[in-house]
Structures are given as C-alpha cells and as structure tokens.
C-alpha cells in the first residue's frame, strides 16, 4: 500500500477515560479528508498524538512507511507532517515575508545561518514572493503581522505550512474565527493546495467540509464511527445519533 501517512490502532486515555480509542486511518498523496465530530469527540487529542505533542499508550504513527511514534514533534515536521493551528500562531512583530522566509530556510536547513539576510537571497525571495502571491498577500509582504487582518493571518498560516513543503498537511479549523466575507479567500486557498499533498482537515463548518473533502471521517467518543464519502455521511444513522446526542447533552451550545 502506498500510504503516505498512517495511524494504526492509536490509543490514549486520561485517567481511565479512553479519549482516543483504537483509531486507525491511512492517507494517500492527494487525499482530501475532513475529520469531524461533536465537541469532546477527541479531535484535539488525536491531532496532538499524531503531531507528537502527546505520546500514545499504544499504537503507531507512520509517515511514508516509517514509524515516527518514538520521534518528537520537530522530527515529524522534518519528515513532512506539518500542521496549522486553530488559533493563528504567528509572530506578531514579524512580517509575512519573514514568516515564509524563515519556514523556507528552516526546510532547507539554513535557518541557523549567522550571516546574510533573506532579502538578499534571491532563491528564498522568489519562493516567498510566489507563495504569498498565490495567497494574495503580496501587498502585505513587509507589513507587521499585528497590523494585518485576521483572515489574512489565516492565509499566512497556510502559507507558512506550505513553505515547509509538507507531504501531509493537518489543517486545524482553517476558517475558524474568519468573518464570513473572507471565507471565500480561504476556500480558494484550500482548493489551490498542491494536488499531490495529503490533507487532513479538522473542521466544524459543514459547508466547508462538503466543498473541500472527498472523504469524511467522523470521530465520536474517541473512535471512528464513520469513514466514507461526504454524500453518505449525513445519511448515516450512527453519525446522526452521535451529533444529536451531543446537541442534546450540550443544550444549545453546539
């Protein structure tokens, strides 16, 4: 099997509560998968286990066939597993150009260089300009992040992830907190992701899920209860039950 990314029987419990309970999935290059689930389904724990910020009790995580279960978060990024954050984590005092340049330099193993400036490195700048141009951020290239709009910061978050040339991209609610008027830009950016990139998107916004994903995985109470096409997911009885259950439990919150 040519899985670029694989999770095998991943388990993790907190104080006896199995938050991730025997989760397995495999992704091939070009996959567009949405991971959904009601609040408390264990999505965040799953992301942390996969990225290496949490250690599983048992199970395996593989990137390109290599087991990375014992490799820390930094090592996984270097092997091509890159994530974006639900709440943007950007350097407020730095510019979009600096963000992307730092990611490019880091990817090429040159972020430790103690001389020269990225503005004077034509190959770096070419990539910076291309990436930011694609995402419509060219004009803001040299403005401080704290001075650009949140929707644009979300796009920059994607740009930084792409600059690392990932094999697997984990998008954690890429449109969270973005005003309705700006979601179009983000959807466009998602549609323009490299075709051979495997993308796993965690998302609440079902409209976005249906437009983006070709496969939907539903997580509830730590286990996968559905794995199939977007058209089938709404018809699935267990999915309906899981969501209705959570709505009922959470009152109006969800």
């Amino acid at each position: 099997m040519s899985a670029i990314f694989e999770v095998r029987n991943l388990k993790r419990s907190f104080g006896g509560l199995a938050v991730t309970n025997d989760v397995s999935l495999a992704m091939a290059p070009g996959d567009r998968i949405a991971l959904i689930g009601p609040n408390g389904a264990g999505k965040t724990t799953f992301v942390n286990l996969v990225t290496g910020n949490l250690t599983p009790d048992s199970g395996d995580v593989l990137i390109g066939g290599e087991s990375v279960t014992r490799i820390d978060a930094i090592g996984r990024v270097r092997r091509g597993l890159v994530r974006s954050f639900q709440v943007t984590r950007l350097f407020q005092e730095m510019t979009p150009a600096e963000h992307v340049a730092l990611a490019v330099l880091q990817r090429d193993g040159r972020a430790g260089r103690m001389f020269g400036h990225f503005l004077a490195m034509p190959e770096v700048m070419a990539e910076v300009a291309e990436l930011l141009g694609k995402l419509g951020l060219s004009e803001l290239m040299h403005r401080r992040v704290s001075k650009i709009a949140y929707g644009q910061q979300r796009l920059l978050e994607i740009a930084v992830a792409l600059a690392l040339k990932p094999k697997v991209l984990l998008l954690d609610e890429p449109a969270a907190g973005v005003p309705q008027s700006d979601t179009g830009r983000i959807e466009q950016a998602l549609a323009d992701l490299p075709a051979d990139l495997a993308v796993l998107m965690i998302e609440h916004d079902m409209d976005l899920v249906f437009r983006f994903a070709r496969r939907v995985i539903v997580l509830a109470a730590g286990t996968i209860i559905f794995d199939g096409s977007p058209s089938e997911v709404t018809k699935d009885a267990r999915v309906r039950e899981a969501y209705l259950g959570s709505y009922a439990n959470a009152g109006h919150a969800a």
Binding site: T51, A73, I74, V77, R78, V82, R83, F85, R89, L90, F91, Q92, E93, M94, L102, A103, Q106, R107, A111, V160, L164
Partner: peptide
C-alpha cells in the same frame, strides 16, 4: 526572534 515570540510555532516549523 521567532523563538522569543512563539516557541511552539518554531517547533511546528521543525526547528
């Protein structure tokens, strides 16, 4: 400077 602002982001960049 990135480390100063957000070490978690730096880790997510693989550094």
């Amino acid at each position: 400077r990135g480390v100063k602002e957000d070490p978690i982001r730096i880790r997510a960049m693989g550094a």
